[in-house]
Design a protein around this nucleic acid. Structure first.
Lengths: 277, 277
DNA sequence: CCATGTTTGGAATGAACATTCCACGTTGAC
DNA sequence: GTCAACGTGGAATGTTCATTCCAAACATGG
């Protein structure tokens, strides 16, 4: 039986159609539907026979599946899976390589620029892989419940905390930025109570001050959440929750791209949690 | 004639082999080589006949080409082109979607986190597209020739300039960070001479102070390079060079991921240019 | 428990495919 | 100018492929 409905025009439409109708599909077709969405690359490259084998159905089932969604045959459906791969923007390295071989001799500044852009990309990739959603959620809850959030950061980490401070200000979340002027830091921290919380940031080489301050807070029963770049960071041991974000570097210099994204996500999540009560 | 050499193991090896031998290849094979490197996706998906047509050669030439590089036939070579697409990390949206449909109900904080990570990715993508390498190079030269670099930034831009300040300090580049304490800014700027230069950062809504200061510098013959998020920024008109970096946002909040990458590339490029004289 | 419609597995079919083969052209050496 | 070696185009070939078809298994409603 050939369906009269016309086939989805692109992969997203197909995906939507599959999800919408997956309840009313017979057993084997459901099996194909699941396989198709889980292994889109296999569908794109494989032959009906090879796909059928790994999906544990008959080739004819694949054809039937395609026809159920309005295609003339399996090949028509396969085109959508291929188009998806085609349109997917090429990887970073590929693009840079294209630039290089076209431009022949690039200025050094361009090389450096591309390097940092690529490093930023990799950092953000690593970020999503490294951050555990549950730990993140716990941290948000912890900080959202604090009366005042103390932001502890020095040197390389300071731009991050200063941006969080800016955002907290806009979001009407009470905070104290520690690390600005010399001397008064400890006085400010002395006012913190266990109803408050601290967010400490420190990357290697660790500013020992930050670690000392974080430890002092923890000792007084003030929960500490921290962002660092190593499990061996002195911050890790005194923190209720801690996150390891490794920024990819270019020529030894790190941009804070991933850390910034993390910081903003944390900041906004905290504000959102408070708003909802 | 069947070559005895063994075929490249991955796409990069093949690419290298093609580039290495492209000089000694006969006419039609050179044609195929060029087509293959320019349209790798076509090779991955097409059939020998379709590829032959768009490369304007005979299908048999494709087979010969593959054999020249040690493959048994065209199909063997095609496998490498397909593997390349397969291994290419999937796009960000794809991965997030996978996360979503697996995790079913995600905590709101996770959604926010993913949103910022995706936004950071997009921002960095846009960055490479938006920055003109020549303008970047000119800016580097301009700032590298300055005696002192004045960093002008307020509010949301301040974290960027403060990180540049940190890096400049490490790199032994003389700078003045403007925008820290209230009041003394204008006094500091008054000391600048045309042998210096300024780097101004301002995003909408623009801190009018920064624009005023940048204009004042420009009026006194001090070259200004600026980073902003719109061509209509007041900074653009008074700057010798200016860059437009649009940060993708998540729920109205922007992380500074792309700007940070840009800032670090600029900073390191300046230091590098100075080091080389 | 039967009748009817639907789903499924597997063989049959014909089209599309990569590959091979051979005759013709082109190039370069002697 | 002739010959040999190499490169090239296009038809021939045998294989692989998607598709179709049909009978058997399975559900579904009376």
């Amino acid at each position: 039986m050939v369906e009269k409905m016309q086939p989805p025009g692109d992969f997203d439409a197909l995906r939507a159609a599959i999800l919408e109708r997956k309840g009313e599909l017979p057993k084997r077709l459901t099996q194909v539907a699941a396989y198709a969405l889980d292994h889109p690359d296999e569908i794109a490259f494989g032959t009906a026979a090879s796909i059928a084998e790994s999906a544990e159905v008959q080739p004819s089932t694949l054809v039937r599946f395609a026809q159920h969604f309005g295609f003339e045959g399996f090949s028509g459906l396969q085109l959508l899976f291929r188009a998806r791969l085609r349109e997917r923007t090429s990887s970073y390295e590929d693009r840079l390589r294209t630039l290089e071989q076209n431009g022949a001799a690039l200025a050094e500044s361009t090389t450096i620029f591309n390097g940092f852009a690529a490093a930023a990309h990799r950092s953000v990739d690593a970020l999503t892989a490294a951050v555990d959603p549950d730990a993140f959620e716990r941290s948000v809850t912890l900080l959202a419940n604090a009366e005042t959030i103390y932001l502890i950061a020095k040197r390389r980490s300071y731009p991050i905390s200063s941006y969080m401070a800016y955002a907290f200000g806009k979001l009407k979340v009470r905070y104290q930025l520690v690390g600005t002027a010399a001397g008064i830091d400890d006085d400010m921290l002395a006012m913190a109570t266990p109803r408050d919380a601290a967010f400490a940031i420190s990357f290697s080489p660790y500013a020992s001050e930050s670690a000392t301050q974080a430890r002092a807070m923890a000792a007084r029963g003030i929960p500490v959440v921290s962002l660092t770049d190593s499990a061996f960071s002195p911050l890790a041991e005194c923190s209720r929750e801690w996150f390891e974000v490794v920024e990819a570097d270019h020529a030894g210099f790190r941009s804070l791209s991933a850390s910034m994204a993390f910081a903003m996500a944390l900041t906004v999540s905290i504000a959102e949690k408070r708003r909802r009560g």
